[in-house]
Computed example of a mutant assay.
Amino acid sequence: MGPALISLPVKPLKKKFLDIRFLKSEFLRKIREQLDVAAKGTYILNRDFDTMSRLVSRLQDEIEHNNAMIKFCLDRREDKLSFQVLKELKKGGFGFMKQVEELEEHVYLCLVTINRARALVIKEISTFA
Rank of each mutant, 00 (worst) to 15 (best):
M1E: 00
P3T: 14
A4F: 04
L5F: 08
L5M: 09
I6R: 05
I6H: 04
S7I: 11
L8A: 06
L8N: 04
P9G: 11
V10W: 02
K11R: 02
K11N: 04
K11C: 01
K11L: 03
P12S: 07
P12T: 11
K14A: 15
K14N: 08
K15Y: 07
K16W: 01
K16R: 11
K16A: 12
K16Y: 02
F17M: 06
F17R: 02
F17V: 11
L18R: 03
D19S: 13
D19K: 09
I20P: 01
L23W: 04
S25R: 12
E26C: 13
F27H: 14
F27K: 13
F27V: 11
R29P: 02
R29C: 12
I31H: 02
R32C: 07
R32I: 14
E33L: 15
E33A: 15
E33Q: 15
E33Y: 11
Q34I: 15
Q34C: 14
L35W: 03
D36Y: 12
A38I: 15
A38N: 13
A38K: 12
K40G: 10
T42L: 13
Y43P: 05
Y43H: 15
I44H: 10
N46C: 14
R47K: 13
F49P: 04
T51P: 08
M52F: 07
R54Y: 01
L55D: 00
V56T: 14
S57R: 14
R58N: 11
R58E: 07
L59Y: 07
L59G: 14
Q60H: 15
Q60I: 14
D61M: 11
N66Y: 07
N66I: 11
A68W: 01
I70M: 08
I70G: 04
K71F: 04
C73N: 02
C73Y: 00
C73H: 00
L74I: 12
R76C: 02
D79W: 10
L81G: 07
S82N: 06
S82Q: 02
S82Y: 05
F83K: 01
F83E: 07
V85D: 04
V85F: 01
L89A: 04
L89N: 04
K90Q: 00
K91R: 03
G92P: 00
G93K: 09
G95A: 10
F96W: 01
F96L: 05
F96A: 05
M97W: 02
K98V: 10
K98D: 00
Q99K: 09
E101P: 00
E101Y: 06
E102Q: 05
E102Y: 08
L103Y: 05
H106Y: 07
H106V: 05
Y108P: 00
Y108R: 09
C110L: 05
T113H: 09
N115P: 01
R116A: 03
R116H: 08
A117P: 04
A117G: 02
R118L: 09
R118T: 10
R118Q: 06
A119C: 03
L120I: 06
L120C: 09
V121M: 03
V121I: 13
I122S: 09
K123Y: 01
K123D: 01
I125R: 07
S126F: 09
S126D: 08
T127L: 11
T127Y: 07
T127Q: 06
F128Q: 05
F128H: 09
A129Y: 08
